[in-house]
Amino acid sequence: MMPVSPILLLVLIVLASSGFLAGPLRRLSLSERQGIALLGALLLGSLVELPLTPRLTLNLGTGLLPLCFALYLARQMRRWWEPLAAVGGAATGAAALALISLYFPPGQPTELNLYYLDAQYLYAVVAGTLGYAIGHTRPAAFAAAVLGSLGADLYHYLRYVAADQPDLVFRMSGGGFHGTALVAGILALTLVELMQGPAADRPVSPDLPVS
């Protein structure tokens, strides 16, 4: 299966370099240079696996860095319900992916009966869509999508790999789709941008009237 995450990052780097992402990056509190640097770090980091245990690793570019970026975006949360929405979206996404994984356990074919798509495509779409629908704002949506995907990966490891496949090294957010958590987060941000536009994260000041 084609590794979608690196290709997606390369496309985003080209768009950011051309100025097409100036508005979305500004709404994420990033300059164009910072955005390009972040995307480059995600791309290069996808080549690095960080060992967590002898049989569990976390991908740097598609796992750890998106998690750190979610924490960075959390500083933009201005409404009391945004952290709750992020946690709720993450829990809902992880539960949904855990249920889906029951149909694709390790050692079984993961190709869907639709144009030979891999189940990991479905995982990213579900996590990203739920992140957007429940998180609603950019920080909460991205955090929900990334944490939901990583939570499902951890469940998958504890449920199948740790118990039934002791000789297998499980790569969190690194195998198969090559970055399900990262792609889910990008999808969630894209949906917020397309469906709600610049007003999605407009801060509400108690001193100013809300229009």
Score class of each variant (00 low, 15 high):
102 L>A: 00
74 A>T: 06
100 I>D: 00
94 A>T: 09
64 L>Q: 01
90 A>G: 12
87 V>D: 10
103 Y>L: 09
117 L>G: 12
74 A>E: 08
67 L>N: 07
103 Y>K: 05
110 T>H: 14
77 M>C: 03
75 R>P: 01
108 Q>D: 08
67 L>V: 07
120 Q>G: 15
112 L>I: 02
139 P>K: 03
61 G>A: 05
66 P>L: 04
80 W>P: 05
120 Q>Y: 13
86 A>G: 04
124 A>H: 08
117 L>I: 10
90 A>S: 15
61 G>Q: 05
98 A>Q: 12
129 T>L: 02
129 T>R: 01
114 L>Q: 01
80 W>K: 11
68 C>D: 12
131 G>I: 06
129 T>P: 01
117 L>P: 11
68 C>N: 11
136 H>Y: 12
73 L>D: 03
94 A>L: 05
116 Y>W: 12
124 A>S: 14
82 E>F: 03
76 Q>T: 08
72 Y>W: 15
134 I>L: 15
98 A>S: 14
110 T>G: 15
95 A>M: 09
120 Q>R: 15
63 G>S: 06
72 Y>Q: 11
106 P>M: 07
115 Y>L: 14
119 A>P: 04
118 D>Q: 10
104 F>K: 01
102 L>Q: 00
78 R>I: 06
64 L>V: 02
127 A>R: 13
115 Y>P: 01
100 I>C: 00
85 A>F: 11
76 Q>D: 15
106 P>I: 12
86 A>E: 02
125 V>G: 11
124 A>V: 08
108 Q>T: 13
125 V>D: 08
64 L>Y: 01
81 W>M: 11
92 T>K: 07
103 Y>P: 00
112 L>S: 01
107 G>K: 06
103 Y>S: 03
72 Y>D: 07
136 H>K: 15
98 A>L: 10
62 T>W: 06
90 A>F: 07
123 Y>H: 00
103 Y>N: 03
85 A>N: 14
88 G>K: 13
89 G>S: 15
118 D>R: 09
64 L>T: 02
124 A>P: 09
95 A>D: 04
